[in-house]
Nucleic acid binder design. Structure first.
Length: 119
DNA sequence: TTAGTGACTGCAT
DNA sequence: CATGCAGCCACTA
């Protein structure tokens, strides 16, 4: 996969799905990161919308591995999802500090990124 | 086709 | 560190 996203992924939505499913267990990615890799650096917000609707559609995705640029879980307009998300992340070994934040420098999914970005 | 919307972000207060 | 705010974007009604 070091050559980038599969060409058959035509829509933004499909690319986001593929990317999220590619995040390895125990690692996390930010909305902006996924947006960038999907081809639209400024569509971080749209990524959130995709995950939101996808969850409703019952798509099987490790959505909990996607967090915001602050290394925190986004909890806009919802109280249950954040708790579940933290639980799922901790279950796979992701650490939260005293401020409920994740150390992106150590936990961020960045395998092969430099290659992708400059390709 | 157009107007709204929000699981985002970076910068300014 | 906490708010506020204006861009930015794919989707949907």
């Amino acid at each position: 996969m070091s050559s980038g996203l599969p060409v058959e992924l035509e829509t933004f939505r499909e690319r986001v799905h593929w990317l999220v499913q590619t995040i390895p267990e125990g690692k996390v990615a930010t909305y902006g990161q996924i947006a960038t890799l999907a081809g639209s650096p400024a569509a971080a917000r749209a990524v959130g919308n995709v995950l939101k609707s996808s969850g409703a559609d019952g798509v099987d995705l490790p959505w909990w591995r996607v967090i915001n640029a602050q290394g925190r879980i986004s909890l806009k307009s919802d109280v249950q999802r954040p708790k579940l998300q933290r639980r799922l992340l901790e279950a796979e070994g992701v650490q939260f500090d005293a401020s409920d934040r994740i150390d992106l420098q150590a936990t961020r999914w960045d395998d092969g990124f430099e290659y992708w970005m400059t390709a």
